[in-house]
């Protein structure tokens, strides 16, 4: 019927096939390229949106972490304040107790010393007192009645022998004064709180 080896119909069909193949290639390639371009644009938008949300989420997380860190720090400071409160209460109690007991002992010692007679009281840079009787003991001074009259010796003027200062806890550097100073400091501290 048809001579396929050399027929012009076959050549025409082949040529048509070539043309169709070329057309298909070009049209499909165009379509795919178009699709690709559109997809690229959408992917870019999606990436930008994702980046934006990521940034927002990071900001939220950072704020959360900062707040948590602050809360922890705050808890530590409150704990420290509580420890200081306890320490202050304990210290106030101990100091008050020691100051009170010390005051009682000092007053007792000073009262007990009144009337004591010292046959010969050697004083640095002054005449010796004979039969010096302790008349009164204050925080900074001791008054003596002696053969030649009355002597009022002061710690500040360094007139009183060191053993008297220690024995009756006299002077500005006395234990009782320092304890009283600590008591007033503790009171101030609790008022400042």
């Amino acid at each position: 019927m048809l001579d396929f080896r050399f027929s012009s119909l076959l050549k025409a069909v082949l040529l048509l096939a070539c043309l169709l193949a070329a057309f298909e290639y070009l049209s499909k390639a165009d379509k795919l390229n178009e699709e690709l371009a559109e997809l690229k644009a959408r992917a870019e938008t999606a990436r930008e949106t994702a980046d934006l949300r990521r940034k927002e989420w990071t900001e939220i997380n950072e704020a959360k972490a900062k707040l948590e860190q602050m809360t922890t720090h705050m808890e530590n400071l409150i704990r420290q304040r509580d420890i200081l409160d306890t320490q202050e209460r304990r210290l106030t109690g101990e100091i008050k107790y020691l100051a009170e007991s010390m005051t009682a002992v000092v007053v007792k010692a000073r009262t007990a010393a009144t009337g004591t007679v010292i046959p010969e009281l050697l004083l640095e840079g002054r005449t010796t007192l004979h039969n010096a009787k302790i008349f009164k003991i204050n925080e900074d001074s001791i008054s003596f009645l002696h053969e030649d009259g009355v002597a009022n010796l002061h710690v500040k003027a360094e007139e009183i022998p060191i053993e008297f200062i220690k024995k009756y806890d006299l002077g500005s550097d006395s234990i009782i004064r320092r304890l009283k100073h600590l008591v007033s400091e503790m009171r101030k501290s609790s008022l400042e709180k």
């Binding site: 320490q87 202050e88 210290l91 100091i95 600590l182 400091e185 501290s189």
Partner: peptide, 12 residues
């Protein structure tokens, strides 16, 4: 406050 209490405690 901590410094003050420490100083008082040391003195005490």
């Amino acid at each position: 406050r901590e410094r003050k209490l420490s100083a008082i405690e040391a003195e005490f």
